[in-house]
Computed example of a mutant assay.
Amino acid sequence: MIKVSIIGATGYTGSELLRYLIPHQEVELAHLTSRSHVNTEVDVYYPFLKGSIDKQFTELEPEKLFNDSDVVFICLPHGHSMELAAAASAYDVKVIDLGADFRLKNIDVYEQTYKVEQAAPNLLKDFVYGLPEKYRADIKTAKYIANPGCFVTSALLGLLPAVNNALVDEQSIIIDSKTGVSGAGRSASVDKLLAELMSNFKAYNPLGHRHIPEIEQELNSSSENAVQVQFTPHLIPTERGIFSTIYATVKDGVTETDIIESYQQAYQDEPFVQILNEGELPQMKHVAGTNNCQIAVQLDERTNRLIVLSIIDNLGKGAAGQAVQNMNIMFGLPEKSGLNTIAMMP
């Protein structure tokens, strides 16, 4: 059995990890930490887990936690994982960080983007970017994983086949993404009040969203030419999900057949990426509660633009589901272990 601990288990990502890990046949939960709910029964704090778990939230004691665990999921805001990862390096324990502290390899870009010091620069080289569809071979032997951002996962899965195969103008990419409110976390704020959110729709950080450098980093590592993206996120009044509509100008001579074949070949063996048939369009409900990504691709011959529709559950493939997928790969387990869920309808 794999002994698993979660640091920061009382947020949305922590609860989603528990939903996947409790029925996982190869997992034994060790420590579930919380700053505010120490000694609280997990199924009291999370009534939806009643009858599924008999544990309490505990205080974070790094030495005990790292000694008792085979893998630790860190579910903390940016700036809080670096010290913990540095402490973990002294132990025989794997780390999967669901925050942003080790996603960006350029220290200056990280510090400019997140306004905090990169306090563990020596560990950057050891962290593997946790997108299995691109880095599976590296993940297999990794000790540390930087789980990708939710918007980034949707954008990269929607764009990598086109960029890898040089099908589009790398300077023409526009990513228009919508997310459910759980992407903003579980802490209380005015923006998430029912009266503020319902019957409302708004963009935020259109010129400087923190995920832009991450998207460009990964696309540039796959392209011979410099990639620059325009990315605008929007908040919509739903609980979960990300819907990215991506536009890019197609290069001369590229046909719709070239595009479709590139996407089908790229993802034909991927357990969680589904390329939809011609005429099918994705809906956020079709991936809710799963680790799946559904993608539809079309070529608008009138404008010579590729249109990609890429949807994920921001808490699933965008966070906890992808983290569990990475854990499965790291420990040589079938990737669908604990993740073979069906979307929730209606």
Rank of each mutant, 00 (worst) to 15 (best):
G51Q: 08
G51Y: 12
I53D: 12
Q56K: 15
Q56L: 10
T58D: 01
E61P: 03
E63T: 13
K64N: 15
K64Q: 14
F66A: 00
F66I: 01
S69F: 07
V72M: 10
F73C: 09
I74T: 08
I74V: 07
C75Y: 02
L76R: 07
L76T: 11
P77G: 13
H78M: 05
G79M: 09
H80R: 13
S81Y: 06
S81K: 00
M82A: 15
L84Y: 07
A85T: 12
A87H: 02
A87C: 06
A88V: 02
S89R: 12
Y91W: 11
Y91I: 07
D92G: 00
K94Y: 00
K94Q: 07
I96R: 04
I96Q: 06
D97F: 03
D97M: 01
L98F: 00
F102W: 07
R103F: 02
L104C: 01
L104M: 11
L104Y: 02
L104D: 00
K105A: 12
D108P: 00
V109L: 03
Y110K: 07
E111H: 04
T113C: 13
T113L: 13
T113H: 08
Y114D: 06
Y114A: 09
V116G: 10
Q118Y: 02
Q118M: 15
A120K: 09
N122W: 11
N122T: 00
L124E: 11
L124I: 11
K125S: 15
K125L: 03
D126K: 15
D126Q: 12
V128C: 08
Y129W: 14
